[in-house]
Protein backbone atom coordinates (compact mmCIF):
# COMPACT_ATOMS: atom_id res chain seq x y z
CA UNK A 1 0.00 0.00 0.00
CA UNK A 2 2.81 2.43 0.90
CA UNK A 3 4.41 1.84 -2.52
CA UNK A 4 1.11 2.76 -4.15
CA UNK A 5 1.05 6.05 -2.19
CA UNK A 6 4.66 6.80 -3.13
CA UNK A 7 3.80 5.98 -6.74
CA UNK A 8 0.83 8.36 -6.64
CA UNK A 9 3.01 11.21 -5.30
CA UNK A 10 5.72 10.40 -7.84
CA UNK A 11 3.34 10.45 -10.82
CA UNK A 12 1.68 13.59 -9.44
CA UNK A 13 5.08 15.31 -9.65
CA UNK A 14 5.64 13.97 -13.17
CA UNK A 15 2.17 15.20 -14.10
CA UNK A 16 3.06 18.69 -12.86
CA UNK A 17 6.39 18.75 -14.72
CA UNK A 18 4.98 17.39 -18.01
CA UNK A 19 2.89 20.32 -19.24
CA UNK A 20 5.56 22.80 -18.15
CA UNK A 21 8.38 21.02 -19.95
CA UNK A 22 6.45 19.71 -22.96
CA UNK A 23 7.65 16.15 -22.26
CA UNK A 24 5.01 13.42 -22.10
CA UNK A 25 4.50 11.72 -18.72
CA UNK A 26 5.26 8.22 -19.99
CA UNK A 27 8.73 9.09 -21.16
CA UNK A 28 9.67 10.27 -17.65
CA UNK A 29 7.66 7.62 -15.78
CA UNK A 30 9.06 4.45 -17.34
CA UNK A 31 12.82 5.03 -17.04
CA UNK A 32 12.64 6.70 -13.61
CA UNK A 33 10.33 4.02 -12.19
CA UNK A 34 12.70 1.24 -13.22
CA UNK A 35 15.29 2.95 -11.02
CA UNK A 36 13.12 4.03 -8.08
CA UNK A 37 10.46 1.32 -7.65
CA UNK A 38 10.77 -2.38 -6.86
CA UNK A 39 8.20 -3.44 -9.50
CA UNK A 40 9.43 -5.50 -12.44
CA UNK A 41 9.84 -3.57 -15.68
CA UNK A 42 6.88 -5.54 -17.19
CA UNK A 43 4.45 -3.85 -14.76
CA UNK A 44 6.08 -0.46 -15.23
CA UNK A 45 5.74 -0.63 -19.03
CA UNK A 46 2.13 -1.76 -18.72
CA UNK A 47 1.31 1.14 -16.40
CA UNK A 48 3.27 3.57 -18.59
CA UNK A 49 1.21 2.62 -21.62
CA UNK A 50 -2.14 2.92 -19.80
CA UNK A 51 -1.02 6.34 -18.47
CA UNK A 52 0.03 7.60 -21.89
CA UNK A 53 -3.17 6.41 -23.59
CA UNK A 54 -5.49 7.69 -20.83
CA UNK A 55 -3.85 11.14 -20.93
CA UNK A 56 -4.25 11.22 -24.71
CA UNK A 57 -7.88 10.07 -24.59
CA UNK A 58 -8.69 12.83 -22.11
CA UNK A 59 -7.25 15.68 -24.17
CA UNK A 60 -7.97 14.63 -27.77
CA UNK A 61 -11.71 15.49 -27.91
CA UNK A 62 -11.10 19.17 -27.10
CA UNK A 63 -8.04 19.42 -29.36
CA UNK A 64 -10.01 17.90 -32.23
CA UNK A 65 -12.88 20.33 -31.77
CA UNK A 66 -10.65 23.41 -32.02
CA UNK A 67 -8.90 22.07 -35.13
CA UNK A 68 -5.47 21.41 -33.61
CA UNK A 69 -5.59 17.59 -33.54
CA UNK A 70 -5.86 16.56 -37.19
CA UNK A 71 -8.04 13.49 -37.73
CA UNK A 72 -6.99 13.19 -41.40
CA UNK A 73 -3.34 12.66 -40.47
CA UNK A 74 -4.42 10.21 -37.76
CA UNK A 75 -6.62 8.22 -40.17
CA UNK A 76 -3.61 7.71 -42.43
CA UNK A 77 -1.18 6.77 -39.65
CA UNK A 78 -3.45 4.59 -37.51
CA UNK A 79 -3.37 1.47 -39.74
CA UNK A 80 0.44 1.57 -39.63
CA UNK A 81 0.91 2.36 -35.96
CA UNK A 82 -1.67 -0.08 -34.61
CA UNK A 83 0.27 -2.99 -36.12
CA UNK A 84 3.75 -1.83 -35.19
CA UNK A 85 2.86 -0.92 -31.58
CA UNK A 86 1.37 -4.40 -31.05
CA UNK A 87 4.43 -6.10 -32.56
CA UNK A 88 6.62 -3.95 -30.28
CA UNK A 89 4.62 -4.97 -27.20
CA UNK A 90 4.83 -8.68 -28.09
CA UNK A 91 8.59 -8.56 -28.66
CA UNK A 92 9.16 -6.55 -25.46
CA UNK A 93 7.43 -9.17 -23.31
CA UNK A 94 9.04 -12.07 -25.20
CA UNK A 95 12.50 -10.67 -24.50
CA UNK A 96 11.89 -10.52 -20.75
CA UNK A 97 10.29 -13.97 -20.50
CA UNK A 98 12.14 -16.02 -23.14
CA UNK A 99 15.74 -15.13 -22.39
CA UNK A 100 17.64 -15.45 -19.14
CA UNK A 101 18.57 -11.88 -18.27
CA UNK A 102 15.96 -10.57 -20.72
CA UNK A 103 15.05 -7.85 -18.22
CA UNK A 104 18.58 -6.49 -18.45
CA UNK A 105 18.49 -6.36 -22.25
CA UNK A 106 15.25 -4.39 -22.01
CA UNK A 107 16.85 -2.00 -19.50
CA UNK A 108 19.83 -1.42 -21.80
CA UNK A 109 17.57 -0.81 -24.83
CA UNK A 110 15.29 1.44 -22.78
CA UNK A 111 18.31 3.42 -21.58
CA UNK A 112 19.53 3.78 -25.15
CA UNK A 113 16.10 4.98 -26.32
CA UNK A 114 15.94 7.51 -23.47
CA UNK A 115 19.38 8.82 -24.39
CA UNK A 116 18.08 9.13 -27.97
CA UNK A 117 15.10 11.14 -26.67
CA UNK A 118 17.58 13.32 -24.80
CA UNK A 119 19.55 13.92 -28.02
CA UNK A 120 16.38 14.65 -30.03
CA UNK A 121 15.25 17.18 -27.43
CA UNK A 122 18.66 18.82 -27.27
CA UNK A 123 19.05 19.17 -31.01
CA UNK A 124 15.54 19.74 -32.32
CA UNK A 125 14.32 23.21 -33.08
CA UNK A 126 10.60 23.80 -32.86
CA UNK A 127 9.10 25.48 -35.90
CA UNK A 128 6.12 27.50 -34.72
CA UNK A 129 4.54 28.25 -38.10
CA UNK A 130 6.51 26.41 -40.83
CA UNK A 131 5.51 27.36 -44.35
CA UNK A 132 4.80 24.43 -46.66
CA UNK A 133 4.58 25.75 -50.21
CA UNK A 134 2.11 24.19 -52.65
CA UNK A 135 4.93 22.68 -54.75
CA UNK A 136 6.33 20.96 -51.62
CA UNK A 137 3.09 19.12 -50.90
CA UNK A 138 3.51 15.46 -51.91
CA UNK A 139 1.01 13.44 -53.95
CA UNK A 140 -0.35 11.52 -50.94
CA UNK A 141 -0.91 14.67 -48.95
CA UNK A 142 -2.60 16.37 -51.90
CA UNK A 143 -4.83 13.37 -52.70
CA UNK A 144 -5.90 12.95 -49.08
CA UNK A 145 -6.31 16.66 -48.43
CA UNK A 146 -3.96 16.55 -45.43
CA UNK A 147 -4.54 20.10 -44.31
CA UNK A 148 -6.43 21.97 -41.62
CA UNK A 149 -6.90 25.24 -39.77
CA UNK A 150 -7.28 26.65 -36.29
CA UNK A 151 -7.81 30.00 -34.65
CA UNK A 152 -4.50 31.23 -33.18
CA UNK A 153 -5.15 33.66 -30.31
CA UNK A 154 -1.57 35.01 -30.28
CA UNK A 155 -2.01 36.13 -33.91
CA UNK A 156 -5.70 36.92 -33.61
CA UNK A 157 -6.50 35.07 -36.83
CA UNK A 158 -7.11 31.68 -38.40
CA UNK A 159 -3.94 29.80 -39.39
CA UNK A 160 -4.13 27.30 -42.26
CA UNK A 161 -1.58 24.53 -42.83
CA UNK A 162 -0.74 21.64 -45.13
CA UNK A 163 1.88 18.89 -44.84
CA UNK A 164 4.67 17.33 -46.94
CA UNK A 165 6.91 14.20 -47.01
CA UNK A 166 4.00 11.89 -46.18
CA UNK A 167 5.47 8.55 -47.46
CA UNK A 168 8.73 9.02 -45.52
CA UNK A 169 6.80 10.06 -42.42
CA UNK A 170 4.76 6.83 -42.62
CA UNK A 171 7.96 4.76 -42.39
CA UNK A 172 9.23 6.79 -39.44
CA UNK A 173 5.89 6.49 -37.64
CA UNK A 174 5.97 2.71 -38.09
CA UNK A 175 9.26 2.64 -36.16
CA UNK A 176 7.90 5.00 -33.51
CA UNK A 177 4.86 2.74 -32.97
CA UNK A 178 7.18 -0.23 -32.46
CA UNK A 179 9.26 1.56 -29.83
CA UNK A 180 6.16 2.92 -28.07
CA UNK A 181 4.63 -0.56 -27.79
CA UNK A 182 7.87 -2.20 -26.73
CA UNK A 183 8.72 0.18 -23.91
CA UNK A 184 5.32 1.59 -22.92
CA UNK A 185 6.65 5.08 -23.47
CA UNK A 186 3.93 6.93 -25.28
CA UNK A 187 5.64 8.60 -28.20
CA UNK A 188 5.08 12.33 -28.09
CA UNK A 189 8.83 12.92 -27.91
CA UNK A 190 9.18 11.37 -31.38
CA UNK A 191 5.80 12.21 -32.95
CA UNK A 192 6.15 15.94 -32.46
CA UNK A 193 9.51 16.44 -34.24
CA UNK A 194 8.41 14.23 -37.14
CA UNK A 195 5.12 16.07 -37.61
CA UNK A 196 6.73 19.47 -37.10
CA UNK A 197 10.09 19.22 -38.86
CA UNK A 198 9.58 16.42 -41.40
CA UNK A 199 5.93 17.01 -42.35
CA UNK A 200 5.89 20.76 -41.73
CA UNK A 201 2.89 20.88 -39.38
CA UNK A 202 2.86 23.92 -37.04
CA UNK A 203 4.13 23.09 -33.55
CA UNK A 204 0.70 23.39 -31.91
CA UNK A 205 -0.82 21.09 -34.52
CA UNK A 206 2.11 18.67 -34.16
CA UNK A 207 1.71 18.52 -30.37
CA UNK A 208 -2.07 18.04 -30.50
CA UNK A 209 -1.99 15.53 -33.37
CA UNK A 210 0.70 13.63 -31.48
CA UNK A 211 -1.79 13.10 -28.65
CA UNK A 212 -4.27 11.77 -31.21
CA UNK A 213 -1.63 9.42 -32.64
CA UNK A 214 -0.77 8.07 -29.17
CA UNK A 215 -4.33 6.67 -28.97
CA UNK A 216 -3.32 4.33 -31.83
CA UNK A 217 -0.94 2.66 -29.35
CA UNK A 218 -3.92 1.54 -27.26
CA UNK A 219 -4.02 -2.04 -28.63
CA UNK A 220 -0.58 -2.60 -27.07
CA UNK A 221 -2.34 -2.34 -23.68
CA UNK A 222 -3.93 -5.67 -24.59
CA UNK A 223 -0.51 -7.29 -24.86
CA UNK A 224 0.17 -6.38 -21.24
CA UNK A 225 -3.35 -7.25 -20.07
CA UNK A 226 -3.25 -10.71 -21.64
CA UNK A 227 0.03 -11.44 -19.88
CA UNK A 228 -1.26 -10.16 -16.55
CA UNK A 229 1.27 -7.30 -16.61
CA UNK A 230 -1.28 -4.64 -15.62
CA UNK A 231 -1.94 -4.54 -11.88
CA UNK A 232 -4.41 -2.13 -10.25
CA UNK A 233 -1.96 -1.41 -7.42
CA UNK A 234 0.50 0.02 -9.97
CA UNK A 235 -1.81 1.38 -12.69
CA UNK A 236 -4.47 3.17 -10.62
CA UNK A 237 -2.15 5.37 -8.50
CA UNK A 238 -0.10 6.14 -11.62
CA UNK A 239 -3.09 7.16 -13.75
CA UNK A 240 -4.68 9.21 -10.97
CA UNK A 241 -1.37 10.88 -10.09
CA UNK A 242 -0.55 11.88 -13.66
CA UNK A 243 -4.11 13.09 -14.34
CA UNK A 244 -4.32 15.30 -11.25
CA UNK A 245 -0.71 16.44 -11.66
CA UNK A 246 -1.26 17.46 -15.28
CA UNK A 247 -4.12 19.73 -14.24
CA UNK A 248 -1.91 21.40 -11.61
CA UNK A 249 0.95 21.52 -14.14
CA UNK A 250 -1.19 23.37 -16.66
CA UNK A 251 -1.65 26.16 -14.06
CA UNK A 252 2.01 26.09 -13.00
CA UNK A 253 3.05 26.44 -16.65
CA UNK A 254 1.54 29.91 -16.68
CA UNK A 255 3.85 31.18 -13.93
CA UNK A 256 7.09 29.19 -14.10
CA UNK A 257 9.96 29.74 -16.54
CA UNK A 258 9.78 26.90 -19.07
CA UNK A 259 13.50 27.11 -19.89
CA UNK A 260 14.46 26.12 -16.34
CA UNK A 261 12.10 23.13 -16.37
CA UNK A 262 13.25 22.08 -19.81
CA UNK A 263 16.84 21.84 -18.60
CA UNK A 264 15.73 20.04 -15.46
CA UNK A 265 13.87 17.45 -17.55
CA UNK A 266 16.82 17.06 -19.91
CA UNK A 267 19.09 16.38 -16.94
CA UNK A 268 16.59 13.84 -15.53
CA UNK A 269 16.28 12.10 -18.90
CA UNK A 270 20.04 11.86 -19.31
CA UNK A 271 20.45 10.48 -15.81
CA UNK A 272 17.59 7.99 -16.26
CA UNK A 273 18.93 6.77 -19.61
CA UNK A 274 22.44 6.43 -18.29
CA UNK A 275 21.29 4.61 -15.12
CA UNK A 276 19.16 2.15 -17.11
CA UNK A 277 22.09 1.26 -19.36
CA UNK A 278 24.34 0.84 -16.30
CA UNK A 279 21.74 -1.33 -14.51
CA UNK A 280 21.37 -3.56 -17.55
CA UNK A 281 25.12 -3.96 -18.06
CA UNK A 282 25.52 -4.61 -14.35
CA UNK A 283 22.76 -7.25 -14.40
CA UNK A 284 24.44 -9.06 -17.30
CA UNK A 285 27.75 -9.00 -15.40
CA UNK A 286 29.44 -6.93 -18.11
CA UNK A 287 30.44 -4.23 -15.62
CA UNK A 288 31.03 -4.51 -11.86
CA UNK A 289 28.22 -3.85 -9.36
CA UNK A 290 28.27 -0.06 -8.95
CA UNK A 291 24.60 0.91 -8.47
CA UNK A 292 23.53 0.01 -4.94
CA UNK A 293 20.22 -1.82 -4.62
CA UNK A 294 19.99 -2.58 -8.34
Amino acid sequence: MEWSIILFVFTLLIGIISPVSGVGGGVLFVPLSTIIFPFHVDFIRGAGLVMAVTSALSSVPYLTRIGLANIRIFALLAPVMVITSVVGGIIGLKVTSAFPGGKYYIEIMLGAIILLVFAVMMLSKRLEFPQVRDEEVDGWSRALGLRGEWFEPSLGRIVRFQVKNTPLALVVFALIGFVAGMFGLGAGWANVPVLNMLMGAPIKVATATSMLIITANAPAIGIYLTKGAILPSVVIPAVLGITIGARIGAKVAEIIKPVFVRWLVLAILFLAGFMNVLKGLQGLGIIPHIIPGA
Binding site: L57, V60, P61, T64, R65, A69, I71, I158, T215
Partner: peptide, 25 residues
Amino acid sequence: EERKIQVDEMGLIFGKTMIIFTVIG
Protein backbone atom coordinates in the same frame (compact mmCIF):
# COMPACT_ATOMS: atom_id res chain seq x y z
CA GLU B 1 -13.59 34.15 -36.48
CA GLU B 2 -12.93 31.25 -34.12
CA ARG B 3 -16.39 29.96 -34.91
CA LYS B 4 -15.64 30.10 -38.63
CA ILE B 5 -12.94 27.44 -38.62
CA GLN B 6 -13.80 24.32 -40.55
CA VAL B 7 -13.32 21.09 -38.64
CA ASP B 8 -14.02 17.73 -40.25
CA GLU B 9 -17.31 16.19 -39.15
CA MET B 10 -15.45 12.90 -38.77
CA GLY B 11 -13.11 14.59 -36.25
CA LEU B 12 -16.00 15.98 -34.25
CA ILE B 13 -17.83 12.66 -33.98
CA PHE B 14 -14.52 10.92 -33.21
CA GLY B 15 -13.90 13.33 -30.32
CA LYS B 16 -17.44 13.16 -28.94
CA THR B 17 -17.41 9.36 -28.90
CA MET B 18 -13.98 9.33 -27.32
CA ILE B 19 -14.85 11.58 -24.39
CA ILE B 20 -17.99 9.58 -23.53
CA PHE B 21 -16.19 6.22 -23.44
CA THR B 22 -13.10 7.64 -21.72
CA VAL B 23 -15.18 8.96 -18.82
CA ILE B 24 -17.03 5.64 -18.49
CA GLY B 25 -13.73 3.73 -18.70
